[in-house]
Simulated scan of single mutants.
Amino acid sequence: MNILLLSGSPSNPSRSTRLLHHVGDRLNELGYRTARVQARDLPAQALLHADFNNDELRAAKALVAQADAVVVSTPVYKAAYSGVLKTFLDILPQDGLSGKLVLPLATGGSQSHMLALDYALRPVLASLAAKHILPSIYATDAQIEWSEEYGLNIDTTIAQRITEGISHLTHSLIALRNQGNNFDAVQFTQLRCSA
């Protein structure tokens, strides 16, 4: 099964992209094929003008279409996901995530921005017809640290959430494959809030 790692960070490097790549590496270790799209690397003019004839945009959209699951990451600014991610999601067809599992990841300066995933990003992903949006993983900047000497250091609480998120994603992919795409919808009351 194919998993797309979609980075919505306008910065390079960024904590949200490092978190995304960490999750991607863990998925690769489990035998999943991953592809990567960094929205910031797509041609800005083509994105802003929704140039559907642009080869790079078409290639990025094709990766979305081929994926069984999408892990999307974004930094949170002013209680919202990034503008570059919004611009990329806007060029997808109305059913651009149809039949796909989605695992949202985000980083932000403080816990006060954590609900941005549930109140800002989740409705957009749902409007794109995602089959199932898994519980979000949110980390503060203090919980994701990088050093040239030691690499990525993830707080134990977030590391546990990542392990749970990967487990949930892999079990959901297996269930999706085994049920021939007859995946049962999850009731809203069963969803956990981001923490």
Rank of each mutant, 00 (worst) to 15 (best):
M1R: 11
M1Y: 05
I3G: 11
L6H: 10
L6Y: 10
L6R: 11
L6F: 13
S7W: 02
P10A: 05
N12Y: 14
P13I: 09
P13Y: 07
R15P: 13
T17M: 08
R18F: 10
L19T: 11
H21C: 12
V23L: 03
L27K: 09
L27P: 02
L30G: 14
L30D: 15
Y32Q: 13
R33N: 15
T34R: 11
V37H: 02
L42W: 01
A44I: 12
L48P: 09
F52S: 11
F52W: 12
N53R: 06
N54C: 10
A59Q: 02
A65D: 04
Q66K: 06
D68M: 11
V71H: 05
V71Y: 00
S73G: 05
P75N: 11
P75R: 10
P75V: 10
K78E: 08
V84L: 08
V84I: 15
T87N: 07
L89D: 02
D90C: 10
L92C: 08
P93L: 11
D95K: 11
L97N: 01
L97Q: 01
L103M: 12
L103D: 05
G109D: 10
S110I: 12
D118Q: 10
Y119R: 02
Y119V: 05
A120C: 13
L128P: 00
A130I: 09
A130Q: 06
A130F: 05
I133P: 03
T140R: 00
Q143A: 07
W146M: 06
D155L: 05
T157R: 08
Q160G: 11
T163M: 03
G165V: 03
I166H: 03
T170K: 04
L173S: 01
R177L: 07
R177I: 10
R177S: 10
G180L: 07
F183W: 04
A185F: 00
Q187A: 04
F188N: 05
F188V: 08
T189P: 03
R192E: 13
C193R: 14
